[in-house]
Design a protein around this nucleic acid. Structure first.
Lengths: 94, 94
DNA sequence: TGCTGATATCACCGTCGCCTGATGTGATCA
DNA sequence: TGATCACATCAGGCGACGGTGATATCAGCA
């Protein structure tokens, strides 16, 4: 799921959605990317559960799912903690 | 920097290093990947400051930098917090 | 100092993912 | 109900990145 944040455009979309729910047209305007491109990225983000879509008439609003980001953050924090704890557990070469 | 964790092999290397410092031969053995491949990934991780290398004679030990992971985790957590706070700040379509 | 082993670097190739133009779908409005 | 708008989907081209074999570098050791 962190994999999805690798793409710069997708990361920008997530950052924009963090400021509040927005619809596709907002994201197209803010990023300068073409609409099909944004739609494709939103589809991937939705499939991964990072965002949810809320149809409002002709518009489709997208909302970030904080729990997904928190889960990823927790995973990284866990690894950091583990690395600190095992900092001196160097494996020996044969 | 999160971008680096997108690659599965690189993510595996980071996870292995979280269990304690290890040298290239350990990572080659544990991942099953070829040695030049591992070396390339380690180079990228080192350039990004995610790991540091500690030459020990013929061997080169790699150690995870917890601060780097914590910074990434903090970034994600910040966005999650922001998303919660702005959850109802929906932008209006023109 | 010549040899061996561990690691780094290089060049090349294949492939995967991103971007784009065209088109389809559904909802709103005249 | 036909037109228009917002959005989704599709198919194709293209570039970037990962994997691999060959080779270079360097440390330890006989």
């Amino acid at each position: 799921m962190i994999r999805l944040l690798a793409d710069p455009l997708r990361a920008q979309i997530v950052a924009l959605l963090a400021e509040g729910p927005a619809c596709t047209c907002h994201l197209v305007e803010d990023t300068g990317a073409k609409q099909p491109n944004i739609s494709n990225h939103l589809r991937l983000l939705r499939d991964a559960g990072l965002v949810v879509s809320e149809p409002h008439g002709r518009f489709t609003y997208y909302r970030l799912v904080p729990e997904a980001l928190e889960a990823a953050a927790g995973h990284l924090a866990d690894m950091a903690r583990l690395a600190r704890a095992r900092s001196e557990a160097r494996r020996e070469c044969p």
